[in-house]
Design a protein around this nucleic acid. Sequence first.
DNA 1: ATAACACTTCGGTGAGCGCCGAATCGTCCG
DNA 2: CGGACGATTCGGCGCTCACCGAAGTGTTAT
Lengths: 263, 263
Amino acid sequence: MIRWDADHESTAETPDLAALAALLADRTRAAICIALLDGGTWTAGELAEYAGVAPSTATEHLNLLVAGGLLAEERQGRRRYVRLAGPDTAETLENLAGLAPYRQVRIRSLAEANHRRALHHARTCYDHIAGALGVALAETMLERGLLVREYGLELTTAGAAWLADLGIPHAGQSPAHRAHVRTCLDWTSRRQHLSGAVGAALYRHALEHRWIIKAPASRILAVTEVGRAAFRERLGLPDEVLTPTPATPLSRDRTEVSPRRPG
Amino acid sequence: MIRWDADHESTAETPDLAALAALLADRTRAAICIALLDGGTWTAGELAEYAGVAPSTATEHLNLLVAGGLLAEERQGRRRYVRLAGPDTAETLENLAGLAPYRQVRIRSLAEANHRRALHHARTCYDHIAGALGVALAETMLERGLLVREYGLELTTAGAAWLADLGIPHAGQSPAHRAHVRTCLDWTSRRQHLSGAVGAALYRHALEHRWIIKAPASRILAVTEVGRAAFRERLGLPDEVLTPTPATPLSRDRTEVSPRRPG
DNA sequence: ATAACACTTCGGTGAGCGCCGAATCGTCCG
DNA sequence: CGGACGATTCGGCGCTCACCGAAGTGTTAT
């Protein structure tokens, strides 16, 4: 709305896109946000170590991110806990990451390589499944006519029936309601996986029935034996997305951690 | 995927969120992107004047935005035409704008005040209707049970029937397909309006039946007399969103355009 | 051909900002 | 109460980058 001040100068409000983008335009802050995409709560110190900066630097970044509304914080004693502000934030961050160019990074240890491999295989994306497993889910459901590609993805009536058969109460029950399907561009594979209400329901269902289990303080998901059977039977998912890739030895493991931004 | 180089160093690829955000972290570049959200094609010179920078500066910004994949360009003779790379880009930009903080800007002329008022009233948002009209559309459809709020917005069966009655062929025809409804946070009112397939179809329908007309080289929409009748009859939209607010005189109009970033 | 025009290239300038270390504050533990 | 610890504040350093103007390139108009 347009307003007039006391001194008869007129002003208006515009969304400051540049200010928001500037928050994410720094590698350290971007890394912090991506770390928080696991939906969890981290302390300032953990994030400082994760991002490879001094605690004082992390403090400054967190101040900016919280003031900008991207992060929510909670203080307990001498600790500062932060997490993403909400699902909107998470969704927009994932969308951005899908649009972003790729960058080469060095793998510095065997542990990091294995961690990365596990992330590519299956991980949470705030409230749904991403990684090779998530992409395979979406693509197989497409092939089987449970989803159809039309301005994003859509649940078909066959898809609603399939969900109902699984025992997911949500979709296609009340005739006035239709299931909300959203897609999320997977930043590990550049293909789309399932999000929205159906994606979230599927994730919850898989967790509750122990098809998958989530490692604490991490985004990594593991498919259980029960899950392998279920995914195979219900969807015919191929084995390669159900079993983790075996770890490959690194030629040089455990190089010392270099100071920030060497390249 | 993880790769091993000839010298046995291992690397991997990560989406460079910071690099993408850096493209939008500059006020001039952000202004250019927002201008292009009208879905149109602009020349480099037009954008330079719009953003208030020298042509040489605009060139540099356009180079970056095109290289970053946000803009598509097309050269014809001595002109350089640019537009947003695609609907994905537009959607993500609108999402970001909805998340962004507000900033006070000065209104420097009567023309600018009127332009801004018109933008708030009704405008395009790439392929659908935004502004007060767009928000009223979504909210009235909600009240009437054509949409339901559930993980975003959903089209109800009543909504599909309503669209079919309008003559919009898309929704609810084939039983295997369901209409894709997306919401888009309106940056002028902080409320949601309708996007996705249904929003786009509604926009096209309104344009074809001359319910609304679009000003050339602008995002501004005007509701016609036919449109007023149609929106009133079909949805019972209140008059205040159907008639443009009368222009209010400014106390000091036509202040000279100040050099960039005075504040 | 010549001039006007749209855009581009390049050098130089100034401001903004991310970083760290040292000192400090407040909390928790022994 | 004293020491360890997590987080914060502040000063200072160095780099990046947005900006402009002047000169240059290629295209269109006269």
